[in-house]
Amino acid sequence: MAEKKWIPRWFYQLASPRWCYQITGKLLPWFMGTTLLLLLGGTVWALLFAPADYQQGNSFRIIYLHVPAAILAQSAYMLMAVAGAVGLIWKMKVADMVLKSAAPIGASMAVLALLTGAIWGKPTWGSWWVWDARLTSMLILFFLYLGVMALNSAIENESTAAQASAVLALVGLVNIPIIKYSVEWWNTLHQPATFTLTEKPAMPVEMWLPLLVMVIGFYCFFAVSLMQRLRNEIIWRERRTGWVRELLNKQ
């Protein structure tokens, strides 16, 4: 087949749950260490050393949680949809499992972004919730996650569930830019933009460098939790194969 020429070998190895289980097992400690280091370092840096905002004082520091969570929520959806596409096209079991594992993590990231947004909103706007464009988009993204998760759990047959959720995730992926654009546009129509929280014209280096560290830390954390969920899923789905039973017998 012509396809095999341009698709690297590791792609096919990924298709094997066993190989995937082993490689994630090897990668996991490294990612865990990096995550711990980055998140701890980033938090200390952000809370103690980064300068306070001249307008918002110290309350702005929640940005170091809010922004990474929001970025992750979006990236996780992207990953989920891509995994769904791979699963649909190449009928790859592992991709199905990635989709299933990524959804709850992405949804919890969206919840974290919404919660931190609310906590941030209280001192800034004086109320817990404001129909700000970014927060509204995040809320809709959270709804999209809920849809994928609900569909996945409603269908009993595992592979049907994975394929159906993959189609839904892809439809959602096409819709996300449209939703984002429409909500932003709706927002400018209804309330003249007073000031947006995240889009500071120029954030000084001392402020965004710790933010960058936190974002990378969150990505690593996402990788760690995804790998752990994926490994659980692999063990569960492959529970009847020889290698999993061997693995379980050893313990």
């Binding site: 809709i140 709804f143 609900a150 839904l168 439809v171 939703i179 654009y181 909500v183 709706w186």
Partner: peptide, 15 residues
């Protein structure tokens, strides 16, 4: 379930 899946996708049209 169908409302759960579809309603978020309806938002741009509504707006």
């Amino acid at each position: 379930l169908i409302s759960l899946l579809v309603l978020p996708l309806y938002i741009p049209v509504l707006i």
